[in-house]
Amino acid sequence: MTADSSERQNNNETIQEPSPLRETWLRLLKNKAAVAGLIIITLFLLLAIFAPLVSPHDPIAQDIEFRKSPPFTRGYILGTDELGRDILSRLIYGARLSMTIGVISVGIAMIGGVAVGTISGYYGGWFDKIVMRIIDIMLAFPYVLLTIVIVAVLGPNLTNAMIAIGISQMPRYVRLVRASVLAEKESDYILAERSIGTGDFELMFGSILPNSLAPIIVQSTLGVGEAILSSAALSFLGLGAQPPIPEWGLMIASSREFVTNAWWIVTFPGLATLLAVLGFNLFGDGLRDVLDPRLKE
């Protein structure tokens, strides 16, 4: 049964054959890794959204009397840091930051990369040649180095960190989208649409792009995890978030002095980062298994 005929049936009567979207969803639910990832992501998203409601303390309020208190001291479940701030509350507000950073960075990379890749693949010619050369040059810089250099040029703060991560991740979307546009643009359905006078813009973004969505979705899910790691790394180096912002990487950076005497200050921010990134990686891997037709049985 083709997707087309099942859709037609859906329109006429109540569900007999699941729609492609529903089918994908059902297959996703059978994938244990994807479900685990989804649960973790949802949890972090909820924490991020409801941070003021769920965090037990103010993330930047200092309880001078109880500096560097170990976990479970006077209602500080994960303990306090060197300035007497509640680590759990800081981690919850940090989730807000990391989720935002991840989504915005990937948004920049995806929107830029998809636009350039689509146009480049569709029109070809000299524009395509120049774009591919630029992409080659961008990929000549190792990813970490590229983000660091861009932030160094733009100035160290969170906004620039997101821009830098976005730019550094852009090449992969350009390549991905360009390749699938090249594969689709000569196909019969596009030729048919063109013959009835559909315009270039409509063809590119209305017809070709929706058919190339699967790899973009997988890439962007994995990209969010990577962006969270990169922003933590930049903040760790002092090139991202600046104190007293409760960013995970920054928390790890300021914990360096306490490896000898306060393990909780060191351990928890890293665990939070690890868990969030793991969530996106699990979900992204699961999505790839489900969406990649080559692995379909």
Binding site: A233, I252, P269, G270, L278
Partner: peptide, 9 residues
């Protein structure tokens, strides 16, 4: 999924 610098610490 791990921040390498954290693992180092």
């Amino acid at each position: 999924s791990m921040p390498v610098f954290w693992l180092g610490l």
